[in-house]
Every structure is written in C-alpha cells, then in structure tokens.
Simulated assay, not measured.
Amino acid sequence: MRSDVTLRQLDEDLLQALLDVAVADADPHEVMPPVAGPAGWTAERRTAFSRFHQSRSLAAEPVETTYAIVVGDTVVGAARLCPLEGAKHAVEAGVWIGRSHRGSGVGGAVFSHLLTLARADGFDSLFLSTKPDNMASQRLLSAMGVDLVHEGDAVTAWVDLVAAG
C-alpha cells in the first residue's frame, strides 16, 4: 500500500488546486455533473465545477465531505463521503483520479483511507457505484474483497464497515 497518498479535507485553497488537476488531467464528465455546451473545460464548466463543490462540501451546512487526494505534495484527484438518505448509518463513497496517476496504486490507498474515515465517522456501511466499463475500479475493489453486483448501467457494492473493521 502506498504511504505517500493522503486525503486532505477540501477548502477554498484546495478547490483551486482540484480544479487545476481536473482541467489538466481529466474529462469534465469524469469529475462533475453534466453542463450543457461544447465539449471540454469551458469557462462555464470551470465555474460549475467550483460552484458544485462550494454547494456540496464547502457550504455552511455541507451535504458531503470532499477530500483532495494528495500524492506527496501534489493534488491528483478527489474523494468524497456522502451520507445516504434513507439508509441508516450508511455513506456513499466516490473517487476520481487524474489520468496520469491512475494504475499506480493511488486508488487502493484512497479506498483504505475512505474506509477508515467512514468508520471513524460512525458509519456501519459504505456504498460504492461505478460504470461497467470502469474495469480498473472493479479490479481494485475485487482485489480488496468487495463483492460487486452488476445491474444494467451500474456496478455496485456495499461494504460492511463493522464486519470489515
């Protein structure tokens, strides 16, 4: 497991670094909700990216906790934990990693950190979802003992944080 990967809770300073890595190393559809307009990182998409994070994790009453994924001193992506409505003591995890850092063990370290953070926050289970074509994430999760469920356009999993702890 990589020891140079850390998660730092998102703040306004890290938000700019996160936007910079998203623009340089990811497609908008990989890292944010859709925004109408031409493809690529338009000014509107950059603004929407920042507003999305400001409204979700930097708001006065945040709905999720977002972390900058840091390798050494470099921001390389984001991870989040969002409590699930209607599922007692459950949280959803989400991750994106810039292309240049994929396949280098960052994802495994991030997943391990997210499990630790979710347990520390008192959650009993963690929900994950990915696309069927995201084979790297599926391999990572399977290698960590997570049972994946393939249903239509999604591959999902629940991790029992109590039993897995």
Rank of each mutant, 00 (worst) to 15 (best):
H101P: 09
S55V: 13
K88Q: 15
P62D: 01
T66L: 01
G72R: 10
I69N: 01
G77N: 03
I97G: 08
A68Q: 05
V91Q: 10
A90F: 13
V91N: 05
R102T: 07
L81Q: 12
T65M: 00
E92K: 13
V91H: 12
V75H: 09
R99M: 04
A59T: 02
Y67M: 01
I97S: 06
V71Y: 11
R80V: 07
V76N: 07
E64M: 08
G86K: 08
L84Y: 04
G72N: 15
R99C: 05
G86M: 08
T65E: 03
H89Y: 15
G98K: 11
L84H: 07
G105M: 06
V70W: 07
E64W: 00
G98V: 02
T65P: 00
S100H: 06
K88V: 14
A68H: 04
A59R: 03
V95Q: 08
R80M: 14
H89E: 11
C82H: 09
G94T: 03
V63M: 04
L84D: 11
H89N: 15
G105I: 06
P83I: 09
A87L: 15
V71Q: 13
P62A: 00
V95W: 13
V95Y: 12
H101M: 10
A78F: 03
T74E: 15
C82V: 10
P62T: 00
A87R: 14
V76C: 08
L58W: 13
V76L: 05
E92I: 00
P62C: 00
E64V: 00
E64C: 02
S57E: 09
G72W: 14
A60P: 00
A90Y: 14
R80Q: 12
V75R: 13
A93L: 10
P62S: 00
T65Y: 01
W96H: 04
S55A: 15
A79F: 01
A59N: 06
G105V: 03
G72K: 09
G94F: 07
W96E: 06
V71G: 02
S104N: 03
V76H: 13
S55Q: 13
V75L: 08
I97Q: 13
R80H: 08
H101L: 01
V63E: 06
A78W: 03
E64S: 04
H101G: 01
T74H: 14
T66K: 01
G77M: 05
G105R: 01
D73A: 13
P83F: 12
A60Y: 05
E64L: 04
T65W: 03
A68V: 02
E61V: 06
A60M: 06
R99V: 00
E64D: 07
W96I: 04
C82A: 14
V75C: 12
W96K: 01
E85C: 05
L84N: 08
G98Q: 10
W96Q: 04
G72Q: 10
V70A: 07
S104Q: 15
K88H: 15
A60V: 03
R99W: 08
G77R: 01
I69C: 03
G94C: 07
